[in-house]
Structure formats: C-alpha cells, structure tokens
Amino acid sequence: MSESGRSLWQDAMRRLRSNRAAVISCWLLGAILLLALLGPSLSPYEYDQISWDEMAMAPSLSSGHWFGTDAVGRDLFVRTAIGARISLAVAFIATTVALLIGVIYGAISGYVGGRVDSAMMRFVDLMYSMPFMFFVIVLMVVFGRNIFLIFVAIGAVEWLTMARIVRGQTISLKNNEFIEATVAIGASPLRVVLRHIIPNVLGPVLVYMTLTIPGVIMTESFLSYLGLGVQEPLTSWGVLVSEGVDEMEAAPWMLLIPSLFLAATLFCFNFIGDGLRDALDPKVEQ
C-alpha cells in the first residue's frame, strides 16, 4: 500500500516538474517569499519612517529608495516587503484555518454518513447562502480593524468548499477494501479517519488549497480597499495598491509596483494550482 501510494506522489512530482509554468511560478514565489523575509533588513529605512523631504520620490538606485517613496516619504521597497509579509501571512493562516476545519468536518461528515451527514451538510448549505462578505464588513466595523479577525473571517468562509470536496472524496473512499480491512482489525473510527481517510484525500485538497490562496489575498486587498483591512502604519499589498490608486497620475510607481507583486503572486498560485491538478489527475495523462 505504502509503495503504490508513494509512487503516485512521485509520479505527480515528475509531471509537475515538467510543467514549465508551474516550475517558474515556484521559483518566482520563492523569490517573493525571500523578499518578504529579508527585504526589510536589506534597506536602511524602516517601513513606518516618515520623511517629509522625500515625499513621492521616483524609484532610483542612488537615493536608496529602490522602489521610490509614498506620499509621506516612506520607503516603498520596505513597505512592499512588509506588505508581502502581511498579505502572505493572511493567505496562509486563513487557508490553514479553512483546511483544518474543512478537512476534519468533511471527513467526519462523509465517513459517519446517514443522518449526521445530511445534518452537517445542511449546515454547510446554510452557511453558503449567507452573504459572508457583508458579515465580514459588519464584523470589521463592530470589532474594529484587526488582522487576527481578517484571518478568522476569511478562513471561516473558505472552509465550506473544502468540507464539500473532502466529504465527496471520503464517501467514495470509505467503501474501499483497505478501509474495510482497517475496520476489521479493530481500528477506531477516529483512527480510520485520521490515518487512512485523510491522507488519501490530500491530493484534491492540496489543489484546492493552492487555488484558495489567491482568492484569500484578493479578499484581503478588497477589504483593505474599503478601508477595512490592516491598520496604519502596518500595510499589505491591498493597502499599498489602494494608496497607489489615489496617486496614480502623479506617482504611477506607487500603484505599479505593489500591483505587480500582487498580480505576480496570484499568477504563480494559479499556475501552481493548475499544474498540481494536472499532475495529480491520472485522467489527463497522455
């Protein structure tokens, strides 16, 4: 069992590696991640360091403001790197929240089946029909702007689809012989779900997760645009972009640079997600 399981993943990795768009995306994403981690320490400036003498300076190598400065003279290179940290952190944490809730919920629902399953799925349907973005907006207004809340709010929306996917996969898995065998040798339902069901649904989950991340980044920047995202002086790509929109005629780099990073990251995740899906789907093998 473990032999064939490993070879499926090896197979997928081989196919993924031959997908040029996905490979380039991985490298580019790595570079952006590196910038997020190391960027702020490479520059002499601080992300919240206001300088009235250097307002809206164009990018230049000699001034040390490699990406220029914003309307109050803060260095955009450092701010872009800090923004990358926040945007990527929101994306990863929210997606992880969605993953944990969705996988466990979906697996239990699918494995237990029957009345429990239909009750649990009714709940998901119910949640689906709520205009969540509005709840998030109301939440932001009620409890104040708070990064933690953004994580939770976005994660709480995204787990629904995850739960549906995992449930579907679980139902088709649970009648297989190896599950029957596991039950026959006396494994507890919890063990069956955790050790045998969940590892086998990871493929589609991984694909969906990769494709969820860009959605989450987009949601965060949407909230930031409405003025409900992270709070000054902290920043995210969404905040930077919406600040850039206001200045786009006078200082186009303020819009261009963060938009470029935002778009490039979303591109990368989309390409990797598509690549993973093709790699894990035996149907597309030619």
């Binding site: 860009p214 645009y225 919406s242 929109v245 819009l255 938009s259 979303l266 591109f267 989309n270």
Partner: peptide
C-alpha cells in the same frame, strides 16, 4: 488569467 489577477479597484 490576467482578468482574474487584477483587482477591480485597480
């Protein structure tokens, strides 16, 4: 793909 990654507010 471009349409998907460029935010509306940009």
């Amino acid at each position: 793909m471009t349409g998907m990654v460029i935010p509306t507010f940009v």
